[in-house]
Amino acid sequence: MWKKLRTHPVLLGSLLPILLVAVWEIMSRAGIIPAYQLPAPSAILSTILAYVQDGSLQDHILLTVYRLFVGFVIGTIAAILLGTLVGYSELAERIFDPLMQAFRSIPSLAWVPLFILWMGIGESSKVTLIAVGVFFPVYLNIVDGIRGVDRKLIEVGRMYGLDGVALVRRIILPASLPSFLTGLRSGLGLGWMFVVAAEIMGASQGLGYLLILGQNTYAPDVIIASIFLFALLGKLTDWVLKLIQKRSLHWQDTALAK
């Protein structure tokens, strides 16, 4: 029994969370933790179920995921284009990189007031903010990845007559794929952070809106429910990327690959 517990990857890791939730439930029911500050797990679960039943939770989730997705795609495409150029061409690096580094040192949330001023509190300011958040980690990882491509492999390409676009396509891009995927994953993480920020700054729907709703209506169960859903969705999307990473990098000779 103990041996099975120790070797099973999920069992051992879920022991502590289960224990904590149980203690939390018991203490809430016993009235040791006041419900207006931290409601019991069962209460939070029934809040989630109530939202599911009236159909509004699905809409909140869909809108949040949609915003994230659009921002993520826009940020990633911009990062791929600029990152490939800067990584490959020294001239482009000297022109663009100082500016990029300067922009990077601005905490992305500082853009919020400006984006609202420019675009109002509609969808475009939200998506822009998310795209900016996603852009930098992806950009930096692409540039790093391309710079880090083994000169020896590039020589192999040149020995077989490759240059320019063919060299990028057949050697540089596949060789920098691991770094690119790492960038995508950290970009996605930041994307989730910024979707919360974007929805807090003014939305009438979405999981971030639920957070504010909970705050304004003194409903900690709603707040915790949306925090939980953010965690769940964040983990889920990261898992999808991790799966893609594992599939496309199965050739890697690393401890992780085996």
């Binding site: 020896k152 020589e155 192999v156 077989y160 596949p174 060789a175």
Partner: peptide, 22 residues
Amino acid sequence: GFIFQEPRLLPWKTVLANTTFG
């Protein structure tokens, strides 16, 4: 044709795909 000191195979390609590379 050039053979380097190290094999310099492309790690993302199979043996066959590496062989047809050129």
